[in-house]
Nucleic acid binder design. Structure first.
Length: 594
RNA sequence: GGCCCUGUAGUUCAAUGGAUAGAACGGAAGUUUCCUAAACUUUAAAUAUAGGUUCGAUUCCUAUCGGGGCUACCA
């Protein structure tokens, strides 16, 4: 690679000039910032080398620059600005690169090695009480995209979902349905199943609050009232019955779950999300209980007088943590122990990635520690891919208070906006109806996915429902548009494989665009290393922007010089491949026309 | 209280310890006899505060002030 070559040559030059051996890691070669692109493609920062040279920054830079010109045939010229040595490569370097790569449809993509152990990526992990909202969308898009990115880096990936289908909260919605539901079903109410069940969860909360308020009037405190509430008692009782495999409870449970799953499935399908395997907590919590019992027997965990089981993590700077309730029922952590074990036994993965919000950082610290203390050496391979919350302008989304942006509504709204904008622009009058619908879907979802994924996963982000997501500027549709533009050119071009020689002098816009395309594989590695789709998104935006400038400043099809024309066509082609492959890693489809 | 994350233009986002802190939206002003104007060009506008480390700090450290999260026999 060019940067490595330059670093190597620089190390060599320094050793000749100053008789000091340094490592290539000690020289910083960065892309020249855009204000100085006329002067160089890459810049060497000389400040750190002054200790070695014992000379001024300018003089040091000039000495190294002169030596590099002697030893590096690829180098065309250099300039020195302050402590920066700007290195300009010969056009032929870039032309040769383009010649070698422009026809590679999968430029920079590494094919998957099936021999190696896979990476298991868990994401989505829905709760059967809550219809998916914007926060879940971020989770799903992140998990899906990270899986695609790792895949493009040659990693075999297994995408798994873990459905949170058991626990006290599930009993709450079941109980509300039983007490107040009047036998409602998705059919009888024409409601999507996940929405229907979610409504009962909200209803339980409302009824509970009423009861607690009444008890408080009789002089109880909030906590006393919650503990004394008959609704809570019934929910707890139901959980015990559920764990005892009570036939009635179990049959209501499966009935309601069936409703939820069919609702989820529709949403996943709309978003284009798929899994290789789905785990259910109801299947894994028993194994979790076994693991906990085993831990008790081996004195890693301890049982209190009330029969609850705990682990003491004080030595690790954390608290005591509950692993089994006094009544013997299991908690979140219990089943996560079981799920992890199951997953390890099944895949022996090189790592297990959990895409879960940062509010659960503590939970995953504990999970990893507990597994380690239980003697699971593979606990080291657990990785919590923690991401920030999606907030509304007025703060956090709250399911129970109905302050959420519903996933289905949002997707529908995006597709509608895409349709309105497309019709307004009036460019697709010759489209068949089905073609047009397909376009609206691609563009609407493209806008949504890009909007979410362009933000660094670690950071919280704000979504304002009052301002709809943009379709202009730094957006998915902008990148899709650029791609469609290139497709239009390629359709019109004939004989696009005309050769071009390395003697054609390059325009600045051409060089900039080539170098950006050239750095695609590096960018991809970075995205995989950081588990960050935002690296891809930001790169794609820059690439699309650079192409549009190139497109405006230079002619392509109407260029008389056939070599230049061929080169620009080749460059357009490579750009379109990289745009498409990059967007594919964000789960965004590209339209050929829009 | 303890622990963790976070403060960048009006707003939403960028910037491996390196040059004059980039974009987009919104604001102002332009570009269609020309390969798709969902584009391009010009313009005003920001690193919370105070110290420290460094040749160099938006980035690392400390304190202060804001914002968020966790600290449940919820998940």
């Amino acid at each position: 690679m060019v940067q490595e070559l330059l670093a190597l040559k620089a190390v060599n030059a320094i050793s000749i000039l100053f008789d000091v051996q340094i490592d290539t890691d000690d020289v910083t070669i960065q892309r020249t910032i855009s204000n100085f692109r006329e002067q160089g493609d890459y810049s060497l920062v000389v400040f750190p080398l002054l200790k070695i040279s014992k000379k001024s920054p300018e003089e040091t830079a000039r000495m190294i620059g002169d030596k590099l010109l002697e030893t590096t045939p690829e180098l065309d010229s250099y300039t020195v600005i302050k402590g920066f040595l700007n290195l300009k490569l010969k056009d032929a370097v870039w032309i040769n690169f383009l010649n070698d790569n422009y026809a590679l449809e999968k430029f920079g993509i590494v094919s998957v090695n099936d021999e190696e152990p896979p990476v298991v990526v868990e994401f989505s992990s829905p709760n059967t009480n809550k219809p998916l909202h914007l926060g879940h969308i971020r989770n799903n898009l992140l998990g899906d995209s990270v899986s695609r990115i790792l895949n493009a880096n040659g990693q075999k990936v297994i995408k798994v979902n873990l459905v949170n289908d058991r626990g006290i909260h599930i009993c709450k919605s079941m109980l509300a349905w039983k007490l107040f539901g009047n036998d409602a079903s998705p059919e009888s109410t024409s409601k999507k199943g996940d929405k229907l069940v979610g409504d009962f969860y909200v209803l339980f909360d409302k009824k509970l609050k009423e009861e607690v308020a009444q008890l408080k009037e009789q002089g109880m405190s909030e906590e006393e009232a919650t503990a004394a509430s008959t609704l809570m008692a019934k929910a707890r009782q139901m959980l015990i019955l559920w764990e005892q495999q009570d036939v009635d409870v179990r049959s209501l449970w499966s009935r309601m779950n069936t409703w939820v799953y069919s609702g989820f499935e529709q949403t996943y399908k709309k978003l284009g999300i798929e899994f290789d395997k789905t785990y259910y907590e109801s299947d894994t919590y028993l194994l979790g209980k076994e693991i906990v019992e085993d831990g008790v027997n081996r004195n890693v965990l301890y049982r209190k007088d009330d029969n609850s089981v705990w682990i003491d993590l004080a030595a690790d700077g954390l608290d005591e943590k509950l692993l089994l309730r006094a009544d013997g029922t299991s908690v979140y952590m219990t089943q996560d122990l079981g799920t992890a074990q199951l997953r390890y036994d099944e895949f022996h993965p090189k790592s297990m990635i959990y895409v879960v919000g940062n509010e659960q950082n503590y939970h995953f610290d504990v999970l990893k520690l507990v597994l380690g203390k239980l003697g699971k050496y593979w606990s080291e391979s657990l990785m919590h891919l923690s991401y920030g919350m999606v907030e509304l302008p007025e703060g956090k989304m709250k399911s129970r208070e109905g302050k959420v942006v519903d996933a289905d509504d949002l997707v529908e709204e995006m597709i509608n906006t895409a349709r309105e904008m497309t019709l307004e622009l009036g460019k697709i009058e010759d489209f068949e109806n089905e073609e047009a619908l397909e376009l609206y879907r691609k563009v609407g979802l493209g806008a949504l996915k890009y909007f979410i994924l362009k933000v660094d996963p670690k950071k919280n982000m704000v979504f304002n429902p009052a301002e709809s997501i943009d379709f202009n500027g730094n957006t998915g549709p902008f990148i899709q548009y650029t791609y469609a533009r290139i497709q239009s050119i390629i359709r019109k071009a004939q004989d696009i494989d005309i050769a071009f020689s390395s003697s054609t002098p390059l325009h600045n816009k051409e060089i900039g665009l080539i170098i950006l395309n050239y750095s695609f594989p590096q960018m991809l590695q970075q995205a995989a290393g950081e588990f960050s789709p935002s690296v891809i998104a930001n790169y794609l935006y820059e690439l699309a922007k650079e192409y549009n400038q190139f497109y405006h400043e230079l002619t392509i099809l109407k260029e008389d010089d056939t070599e230049k024309k061929a080169l620009r066509l080749a460059l357009s082609r490579l750009t379109s491949y990289n745009l498409k492959n990059g967007m594919q890693m964000l789960g965004i489809e590209m339209p050929d026309r829009m």
